[in-house]
């Protein structure tokens, strides 16, 4: 049975339920959010319908510029750290036996599926004074007494790298598994050491994959909404944290929505860029 062009209306019926659900509960909420971003704040309720651009005008303050700059910087840092750790790791992983690979994949998926709440709680425990890693350093004689390592920028970074690392590995995995093995064999036959072959053959061959992965991890890190709040100080808050804070705690849904629209635009631009990079590689 080949793929066929739908002939009658009845052929479209399978699309009815999925289409309806996705339009009513995704397209409509999304549009609602965009509409609300132009509404006025109503401290007593959610909002008052209106058409104002005040919510967007607030982007021009230095406070907002600071938050945006910090969010982007943090996401770039997380993406770079994750790809630097994950790329060689994933490459080596694909060279191991299937059993070992499967074991790692199960572990990585388990960590990846963990709630941000749990990751935040786990790292705040690991960095705490009473149960933290510094107790181990004291026991080893490296430190005099245990200290709390949070709230600090380092704690935020560690937590976010932890959250994004399994994601990075799983994004890189398909590309590295499918990498043509003859490429490496050729390099080895011509006398390159494994390390040299990795840096001079594998890495350049997957340059576009690496760029696309950097962008994907960057968008993933932009979405982190709890870790900067649990592990950092208010000045470490990112755009995602601020959106939650405005919408829920400051009951300023319109401003939160405006920031969300802004975040959508950044993410979409990056996803578009990534698809472009990906297409280039396929064309080669």
């Amino acid at each position: 049975m080949r793929r066929e062009v739908p002939k009658s209306f009845a052929d479209y019926t399978p699309l009815l339920f999925p289409g309806l659900m996705l339009v009513v509960f995704f397209v409509v909420p999304f549009s609602t959010m965009i509409a609300v971003s132009f509404f006025k704040r109503n401290p007593a309720g959610f909002y008052t319908p209106d058409f104002v651009v005040d919510n967007y005008a607030r982007f021009l303050t230095t406070f907002f510029a600071g938050v945006l700059g910090f969010s982007l910087m943090l996401a770039v840092l997380v993406a770079v750290c994750c790809v630097c750790i994950a790329f060689p790791f994933t490459y080596l992983l694909t060279k191991r036996s299937r059993r070992v690979q499967t074991l790692w994949l199960v572990g990585l998926l388990s960590v990846l599926s963990l709630s941000e709440v749990i990751i935040g709680f786990a790292w705040s425990t690991l960095f705490s004074q009473t149960a933290g890693i510094t107790n181990l350093f004291v026991a080893l004689g490296l430190m005099d007494k245990p200290v709390a390592l949070l709230p600090t920028f380092g704690a935020v970074l560690a937590g976010m790298v932890y959250q994004a690392l399994p994601y990075t590995i799983l994004v890189l995995y398909p590309a590295l598994v499918r990498l043509d093995p003859t490429l490496l064999e050729a390099a080895r036959t011509l006398g390159a050491s494994p390390v040299k072959a990795f840096f001079n053959v594998v890495t350049p061959a997957l340059r576009n994959t690496i760029v696309a992965t950097l962008i994907m991890v960057f968008v993933f890190a932009l979405g982190s909404y709890l870790l900067p709040q649990i592990l950092g100080r208010p000045r470490h808050w990112t755009l995602s944290v601020l959106i939650t804070d405005q919408a829920i705690y400051q009951s300023n849904m319109p401003f939160g929505a405006a920031m969300a629209v802004f975040l959508v635009l950044i993410s979409l631009a990056l996803v578009g860029l990534m698809l472009l990079v990906g297409r280039k590689e396929n064309a080669l």
Binding site: P29, A260, S267
Partner: peptide, 21 residues
């Protein structure tokens, strides 16, 4: 694309969309 979008966008956005809706 609509089915994939909620997962690719930062989760806060989808969440806020549901909240306003």
């Amino acid at each position: 694309v609509l089915g994939l979008a909620p997962f690719i966008l930062p989760p806060v956005i989808t969440a806020l969309g549901f909240l306003t809706f």
